[in-house]
Simulated assay, not measured.
Amino acid sequence: MLTYPEHREWPSTEREWAQRIEQVGQQRLVGPDGKDREAAPKAAPAPRFISRREWRAAAPTQTDTVNFWPEWGGIVLHYAGGGKEMREEHSPGRTPAPLDDCYYQVRLIQHRHMHPSPITGGERYWDIAYNYLICHHGYTFVGRGLASQPGANGSRYANERYYAICGLIGSGDPKPTDVMLRETKAVMEWVRRYDQAGARVEGRHVKGHKDVDRDPPTQCPGSLYPYIGNGYFD
């Protein structure tokens, strides 16, 4: 439950409303009178967000909301990696979370991004590298969120122009579930509506990671890629 401050004005722009929804996630938003409040107008349906507070994200070391122009690019879709990445459990509120759990998985991804192993190496990011991460249960974990430059797209050019959305699925998993695909599409519609992703691009503006990052070659986003080709996310 989040208590809304008594003397704070409610956000007024559509983007501010959208960012407020991401901050609230699955929590109740309660006003100073103890009554439930709406995070945004009911006319603006939202994905099933799990806020950073809910998945207990570490604080970023910095952010970049200036050098990001997704209207000139769009959206890049990722998967979580090789092997089996789908987690059996989805258990908010359990402390500690089971290892086979989506909440634990997202926290682990953030830790690996911010603190790469000295043995295996890897780029050090200022936060989890994705804007959003979607599990096969049909929920969206807020990463860097709306209007923030990602770090996962493989180059400065791609990071400055494309949202990075990650499906929590791997090359060894079954096909993506219907609820995962619907939630992914809902998140893509979200960034189109509230940050004009792909608005100035002719043709398809949803790409796979392997379309924008070919050095070294990658198979990402794996089994999600055919849904780009068949126009599901258009």
Score class of each variant (00 low, 15 high):
54 E>A: 06
65 T>C: 14
85 E>D: 10
71 E>A: 13
50 I>M: 09
55 W>R: 09
58 A>E: 14
53 R>W: 01
75 I>Q: 02
65 T>V: 06
85 E>A: 10
49 F>L: 02
79 Y>E: 04
72 W>D: 14
63 T>S: 14
50 I>G: 12
80 A>R: 02
49 F>T: 00
72 W>N: 14
44 A>S: 11
86 M>C: 10
57 A>Q: 06
84 K>H: 06
56 R>C: 08
61 T>A: 03
86 M>D: 10
86 M>P: 11
51 S>K: 11
75 I>V: 15
83 G>F: 04
66 V>I: 07
87 R>Q: 06
64 D>W: 14
70 P>C: 02
71 E>N: 10
80 A>Q: 07
45 P>M: 03
69 W>S: 10
79 Y>C: 13
45 P>H: 15
58 A>D: 14
49 F>A: 04
45 P>C: 09
73 G>A: 07
79 Y>L: 12
60 P>N: 08
78 H>L: 08
52 R>H: 14
52 R>D: 00
84 K>D: 04
54 E>K: 11
44 A>E: 03
86 M>I: 01
81 G>F: 12
73 G>K: 02
68 F>L: 06
84 K>W: 03
75 I>G: 00
51 S>N: 08
58 A>W: 09
65 T>W: 15
69 W>A: 05
65 T>L: 05
76 V>E: 09
64 D>P: 12
76 V>P: 00
62 Q>R: 12
88 E>A: 07
79 Y>W: 15
82 G>I: 00
81 G>M: 02
66 V>R: 11
62 Q>F: 06
73 G>D: 10
70 P>R: 08
79 Y>G: 03
44 A>M: 13
67 N>M: 05
65 T>S: 11
83 G>W: 12
85 E>H: 15
70 P>Y: 03
46 A>E: 11
82 G>K: 12
72 W>G: 06
75 I>H: 02
59 A>T: 08
44 A>K: 15
82 G>A: 13
53 R>T: 03
68 F>H: 07
54 E>P: 09
78 H>M: 05
70 P>F: 02
71 E>R: 04
44 A>T: 08
81 G>N: 13
58 A>M: 13
83 G>P: 10
88 E>W: 11
83 G>R: 13
73 G>Y: 06
87 R>T: 00
63 T>C: 12
78 H>F: 14
88 E>S: 10
47 P>K: 02
65 T>E: 11
47 P>E: 08
58 A>L: 15
88 E>P: 04
87 R>Y: 03
53 R>M: 01
52 R>G: 15
77 L>H: 12
64 D>H: 05
57 A>K: 04
87 R>M: 04
64 D>S: 14
86 M>T: 09
78 H>K: 14
51 S>W: 07
69 W>C: 07
87 R>I: 00
82 G>D: 13
75 I>S: 03
63 T>Y: 06
74 G>Q: 08
81 G>L: 05
50 I>A: 06
80 A>I: 01
61 T>Y: 06
76 V>W: 03
52 R>Y: 10
46 A>K: 10
78 H>N: 07
64 D>R: 12
64 D>L: 08
58 A>S: 11
55 W>F: 04
50 I>W: 11
73 G>F: 04
55 W>D: 01
52 R>P: 12
86 M>E: 15
